[in-house]
C-alpha cells in the first residue's frame, strides 16, 4: 500500500446548494486528476455544479479524545439558541 496515490477529500456543490458539502474521498496522483476522478465517482447522477478537492493530509481535525472539553460545555448553555428567548406576540415576521 506504500505506493498508493494520496487520499483526497471531495466537496461538491449541488444544483441548489449554497455551500460545498463533503461527499467522500478518493485516491488520485495529483489535484487535477483528483477533480477528474471526483467527477467520475461522485457526479454521475447529476449531483453537482462545482467540485473542490483537498488532500486529506492537509485537513487538521479535532481529536476524538478532546470531545468532552470541546463540546460538552455548550450543552449547558441553552440560552445560546434563539428559541430560548420568548418572543412577544406582537412581533411579527420573525
Amino acid at each position: 500500500m506504500k505506493n498508493q496515490w494520496p487520499l483526497w477529500e471531495v466537496f461538491i456543490r449541488s444544483q441548489h446548494g449554497l455551500a460545498h458539502r463533503h461527499v467522500g474521498s478518493l485516491h488520485a496522483p495529483d489535484a487535477t486528476m483528483a477533480v477528474n476522478n471526483a467527477r467520475d465517482v461522485y457526479t454521475r447522477r447529476n449531483e453537482g455544479v462545482s467540485i473542490w478537492v483537498v488532500k486529506s493530509i492537509d485537513i487538521t481535525a479535532s481529536h476524538p479524545d478532546d470531545k468532552a472539553e470541546l463540546f460538552d460545555p455548550a450543552q449547558a448553555k441553552v440560552y445560546r439558541h434563539p428559541t430560548f428567548f420568548p418572543m412577544p406576540e406582537e412581533v411579527k415576521g420573525l
Binding site: H27, N37, D40
Partner: peptide, 11 residues
C-alpha cells in the same frame, strides 16, 4: 487498476 479508474472507464 483502482476504483477511480474503474468508474471512469465504465462511465
Amino acid at each position: 487498476p483502482a476504483l477511480e479508474e474503474d468508474m471512469a472507464l465504465t462511465n
